[in-house]
Amino acid sequence: MTCRNYKELMMGYLDNELDDEQRKVLEEHLASCSECSKELEQFKQLKRITDEVTLVEPEDRIWEEYWGSIYNRIERGIGWILFSVAAILLIIYAGFKAIEELIRDPAVGIILKAGLLALVAGLAILFVSILRERLYFRKRERYKDVRR
């Protein structure tokens, strides 16, 4: 084994992840290799630095509206679906009412009727979809208050 191979053992040593056998192998090597024992000292110091970086308590402000927004986000997902479905149905219904006489008129061809119905349904879905996107992006856009 070359000195390079001992590096992973050194890490395990620092992190307390070696079994007795591995520890013995490393310690025997360290006793005979000053380069590696110097390096281990360096890594010990390094680990003390990274250990020191530990917990920085987040400001309470972060958690203040936290719960509200977690549930809001989940509820909003469901809310949006219900809203979209209902809005689409209502708009289709209104559109259908507007062309009801045409539809009931036996003189108008079936293809024209189907076309009109599809048109109404398509418009309803497009309208709701664009409305949703508008509302969504207004809320999400982080720079909306920045004047450009």
């Binding site: 920085v56 987040p58 986000r73």
Partner: peptide, 26 residues
């Protein structure tokens, strides 16, 4: 707090770390 802290140390942006923490729990 621990999740936030780990995320913050990986992404180094407090605002985004808060948002990512929220995404995590959602």
């Amino acid at each position: 707090n621990r999740v936030y802290n780990a995320i913050l140390k990986i992404c180094a942006n407090p605002h985004d770390a808060a948002e990512l923490t929220q995404d995590t729990f959602v």
